[in-house]
Nucleic acid binder design. Structure first.
Lengths: 264, 264
DNA sequence: GAGTGGTCTAGACCACTGT
DNA sequence: CAGTGGTCTAGACCACTCC
């Protein structure tokens, strides 16, 4: 025997999934639902709590409870890495003609707004380990925020770290006003003689901290998808560590692995 | 002014994080906590709901509320694919000597309990599209559950689909009692002349549905990490589509991309 | 001010676990 | 059986939004 709140949640969930209630629609008020289901407030609210955790509904204090629209999920594939590398030798004109994000699908490029902030930093223990340098090594920290034009909260937050000693051959690389750099980080690295050979991505999902929940405008505890991308040069150094974060419902990551003939 | 349930949750959270309450310890009973905090049952339970969603505590009906031990996250890398391929030519003895899961880190292999179920199925629209076959094509559906020995809920759930016409050359492949098959799916496919050339993984995180929350014993709405793994043979056919699911806090996936020289 | 969702209370009764 | 957590009620009062 299922609990009452479970049956109420299942009923409303069904009405949403059957499109009887459309995204953006307001649900009947709690008062009306109390009447309809003949339960007490605590029970009804518990059913709504469930649906809210499942992202089916969004409650707005004073205005009402609304069916959440499914946000489009951006698709990004690891094949963009080779694509980006192939463009390293192109002229600035050619690199400008097509941005890397067009390799992604889900939303048109024009709908994104980028911003970048550069600052100097010193390697903490985590970054020193990831970059293979000593704690305290001077780094360039680049923070990128991407948002969709009609939203205020960021869509993606990327914090990238480069080792200053790797890139000081080209002072333009330390200048945030040069962003967005046509051709991206692989081209930037090529200007100081670094060729990228290998990239690893470590992907996981975890609940947003209180700060992150505020920044991304998601519920506290809601999941973020995070990806630490580590870039290796042909001479085996780690040349970039980039931490990527998205609200989990906004991103899908694809990776392609090509296998060689079996060997022992 | 924070809500009462928030302050109670914060207080208990602090007592747990300060190790005043250790993993495995029983919290004071609800009756005792009602006394201690001087609130009503609904308020207290709401605080406990929060802590349960954050996985700090686990409530067991009739026994008590316990501090949860932090679960280890399993690490899995895409390098296991090539490793598995390299073992296809080995003898059964050699393949038996080391299981694929030993390529993972985080928990010792002996602590895992596997179970497999085979059944016949027909391709629905989604699977037909993923496998590149007609809707209704006969498939073999293999469902794998993995759990940790001292837990009752599964750690991982994998639903794999193979095309029956690809594998009917070896009737043993349709027999679930042959599981666990030493050498894994790549070896199984090799027995019908299929060599794997390329694997794609599409990774995303989403809230668990009500059914999944029950199955994995996680709070409703808690995040799952899901990975659709698509396997291509050397002759370009899709030979397996495997849907992998884990509670998000239990898995981290790594992928390695090696780049070739730039080309246009 | 009317209507919405958010918090809280005091209590009843049920379901499960261990002795 | 006593003790635990799980569900539900009927109501009060508060906070926010929009007219």
């Amino acid at each position: 025997m299922a609990a009452k709140f479970d049956r109420i949640a299942a009923d409303l969930r069904h009405r949403i999934e059957a499109s009887e209630l459309q995204p953006g629609d307001r649900l009947p008020s709690e008062t009306a639902l109390l009447e309809e289901y003949g339960v007490s407030l605590g029970t009804l609210r518990r059913a709504l709590d469930l649906l809210e955790a499942e992202r089916h509904i969004q409650r707005v204090h004073g205005r009402g409870t609304f069916v959440r629209s499914r946000r489009t999920r951006l698709e990004r594939s690891s094949t963009r890495y080779q694509w980006e590398k192939n463009r390293v030798g192109l002229s600035e004109e050619e690199r400008l003609s097509e941005g890397a994000s067009e390799k992604d699908t889900g939303l048109p490029l024009e709908r994104f707004v980028f911003s970048a902030r550069y600052e100097e930093a010193k390697a903490d223990e985590d970054l020193a380990d990831a970059l293979g340098v000593e704690v305290g090594t001077p780094l360039l920290r680049r923070t990128y925020r991407t948002r969709v034009d009609d939203e205020s909260a960021p869509f993606a937050l990327v914090v990238s770290h480069l080792v200053v000693s790797h890139i000081e051959g080209n002072p333009r690389l330390m200048d945030e006003s040069a962003e967005p750099w046509p051709g991206g980080t692989q081209h930037q690295l090529s200007t100081v003689g670094i060729e990228v050979e290998r990239i690893t991505d470590r992907v996981l999902a975890r609940p947003a901290t209180a700060d992150e929940a505020r920044e991304f405008d998601v519920a506290p505890g809601e999941a973020l998808l995070v990806d630490r991308k580590t870039t290796f040069s042909t001479d085996g150094r780690v040349v970039e560590v980039a931490d990527n974060k998205w609200p989990a419902d906004r991103m899908a990551l694809s990776f392609e692995t090509t296998l060689e003939k079996a060997s022992r």
